[in-house]
């Protein structure tokens, strides 16, 4: 599956948040969120978890906060494309 197809399969929306942090907010498709979370948890390193609701992850030097509601924040990214590249790897 291509990177584009992978993103299309799992992601409903990606938005650059405003604020100096340059965070990128990812909304997974509701029906695919559990599968997406499971795939990401297999590949990224879980640094910390809060009651199975929030997962603080690292992957290739990037910090990610994953929520079991089907959302994630990719911290301090240069731009949205960078988050998409990381996501494509994590969701493969």
């Amino acid at each position: 599956m291509t990177a584009g197809a992978t993103l299309e399969k799992y992601i409903a929306r990606i938005e650059e948040a405003c604020g100096e942090e340059k965070d990128v907010i990812v909304h997974f498709k509701y029906e695919k969120k559990d599968e997406a979370i499971s795939r990401i948890l297999k590949r990224a390193k879980v640094e910390r978890t809060v009651a199975g609701i929030i997962f603080d992850l690292t992957y290739k030097g990037f910090s990610i906060r994953l929520y079991n509601t089907g959302k994630a924040i990719f911290k301090k990214m240069k731009e949205k494309n960078q988050a998409q590249e990381v996501l494509a790897e994590l969701l493969l």
Partner: peptide, 12 residues
């Protein structure tokens, strides 16, 4: 927490 974390957590 950064503000987006807070907003996402409150959303839950």
């Amino acid at each position: 927490f950064n503000s987006h974390d807070v907003a996402l957590l409150l959303d839950s």
